[in-house]
Design a protein around this nucleic acid. Structure first.
Length: 358
RNA sequence: GGGGCCGUGGUGUAGCGGUUUAACAUACUGGCCUGUCACGCCAGAGAGCGCGGGUUCAAAUCCCGUCGGCCCCG
C-alpha cells in the first residue's frame, strides 16, 4: 500500500477537501463517482467522463461476477483494461444487491445465496469470493460484502445486520492477499438508529490497521431525510479523522451538500445517469422533467447557466423531442448534462472548503 | 351482376347474446426513480362499439336495411 492513501488539504465547518492517492491516479475530494454497474457508465463514453473531469468511477462486483465473470476480467488483465478506463475504480461488493434483489436471495452467516436476475442460475456469494473477485479486477478500492437493513428495521434486525457485516469484514481482511496495492474500506451498517451505527463504527475500527477508508452504507433506502441527516451528523465524527469517508449510494445534490458538511468525502449515486435516461435533468432551476409537453416549443437552453455541450448546443424543445421519440441521443445528452451538473456541484463544494481555509 | 370479409378510445387490435361500469398495446397527460434487475415504474384522461331499424328480460355481440373500405368470381 502506497502511503499515504489520503491527504487532507483543508478542513472546516464546510467539510473536508483532500486527495485520494490510488495506483491509477489521484482523486480530489469531496468527489462523486459515476456508477458503472455493468462495466459502463451508461450512455456516456469514458473519454467524455474524462472531459467532464471525472477521475474515478464505480463498478459492481455482483453484476460483473455474473457477467463477464472472473475469467472474463482476467483475460483482459484488469477491470481497467476491460473497460477502457485507466483511472481509479472502486468496486462495490454486491451488498446492496442483497437488498435490491431481495426476491431472489437468501442471506446466511456464511454468505448470500441468490439467483441470477439474468438467467436464474444459483450462486453463492461469500466475503472471500467477493474479495477474490475484486482482486482479479485489481480495482483501486475494494468494498467488503456487507448486509444493509431494510427500512423500517427492528432493533434486532439492525443489530443482526451490523454484526454480520462486521463478521464478514473480518473474513474479508483474512482472505486478502498481502501485500496489496488495493485499498479496502470498512462499511458501517446498523440501520437507522445512532446506537447501532455507533456500535458498528466501533467494531469496524477494530480492524482499522487493515482499512484505508470507511463507508456508511444502507442509507437512502426510504428513511426520512431528517433522520438520515442527524444520523450522519452524529456518526461521521466518530469515524477516523485521517481516513476517507464514503457515503454509499447517496444521493441528490442536496443530500451530498449536507453530507459534505458532516465530513463525508466520497459519494456515488445512480441518480444523474438514471434520471438522465428517464428524461429528467438537474438544473439551476431544480429538477426538470423533459417529457413534459410544456417544453415542446421551448427554444431556450436546458439550463441557461450551464456550459455543458448539451446546454450550449441544443434547445429544450429539441431535447423534449428526443426524449419523447425515445432517441438514444436523449439518454446521452441528459446523462452528459447531469454528470456535468454533479461535477460542478462537487467542484463548488471543494472550492468553498478551500476558500474558507484561506 | 353474384359472393365474401371488415368497420370498437388518436392509431392498431381483442371481445362475437348476460361474469364488460367495453379490454389490450401504443400514443397522449402527470408523477416517481438515491452502493442500477431499470431507454424503467406508477397513475390519469380518452370509445359506448359506422349509421338506422328490429328480435330479446338483456345486443358491440343475433336479424334486416344502409353507408364506407377490401377481396374473390363473372
Amino acid at each position: 500500500m502506497r502511503t499515504p492513501f489520503f491527504t487532507i488539504v483543508a478542513r472546516n465547518e464546510q467539510g473536508r477537501a483532500g486527495v485520494l492517492h490510488t495506483p491509477h491516479g489521484d482523486v480530489e475530494t469531496p468527489a462523486f463517482l459515476p456508477v458503472g454497474t455493468y462495466g459502463t457508465v451508461k450512455a456516456i463514453l469514458p473519454r467524455d467522463l474524462k472531459d467532464l473531469h471525472y477521475t474515478m468511477i464505480l463498478g459492481n462486483t455482483y453484476h460483473l461476477y455474473l457477467k463477464p465473470g472472473e475469467e472474463g476480467i482476467r483475460r483482459a488483465g484488469t477491470l481497467h483494461r476491460f473497460l477502457g478506463w485507466d483511472g481509479p475504480i472502486l468496486t462495490d461488493s454486491g451488498g446492496f444487491q442483497v437488498l435490491s434483489l431481495s426476491r431472489l436471495r437468501k442471506v446466511t452467516d456464511e454468505g448470500v445465496e441468490f439467483r441470477s436476475h439474468i438467467n436464474g442460475s444459483l450462486h453463492f456469494l461469500t466475503p472471500e469470493k467477493v474479495i477474490e473477485f475484486q482482486q482479479a479486477c485489481n480495482s483501486d478500492v475494494m468494498m467488503p460484502l456487507d448486509h444493509p437493513a431494510f427500512y423500517p428495521a427492528s432493533g434486532a434486525e439492525e443489530r443482526a445486520c451490523l454484526l454480520r457485516t462486521y463478521e464478514w469484514l473480518v473474513r474479508s481482511v483474512r482472505s486478502m492477499r498481502i501485500p496489496s496495492a488495493q485499498a479496502l474500506f470498512g462499511i458501517v451498517q446498523g440501520g437507522f438508529t445512532i446506537k447501532h451505527r455507533l456500535e458498528s463504527s466501533e467494531r469496524t475500527q477494530k480492524l482499522d490497521g487493515h482499512l484505508q477508508g470507511y463507508a456508511v452504507g444502507g442509507l437512502s433506502v426510504g428513511e426520512p431525510r431528517e433522520q438520515r441527516r442527524s444520523l450522519l451528523q452524529e456518526l461521521v465524527p466518530h469515524l477516523p479523522m485521517e481516513k476517507p469517508r464514503y457515503l454509499m449510494g447517496v444521493g441528490t445534490p442536496e443530500d451530498i451538500q449536507e453530507a459534505v458538511k458532516a465530513g463525508v468525502d466520497l459519494f456515488d449515486c445512480v441518480l444523474p445517469t438514471r434520471l438522465g435516461r428517464h428524461g429528467a435533468a438537474f438544473t439551476s432551476e431544480g429538477r426538470l422533467n423533459l417529457k413534459q409537453s410544456r417544453f415542446s416549443l421551448d427554444v431556450s437552453p436546458l439550463d441557461p447557466l450551464c456550459s455543458c455541450y448539451a446546454c450550449t448546443t441544443f434547445t429544450r424543445s429539441y431535447l423534449h423531442h428526443l426524449v419523447t421519440s425515445h432517441e438514444i441521443l436523449a439518454c446521452q445528452l441528459l446523462t452528459l448534462h447531469n454528470l456535468h451538473f454533479y461535477r460542478q456541484v462537487m467542484k463548488t463544494l471543494r472550492e468553498r472548503i478551500l476558500s474558507q481555509s484561506g
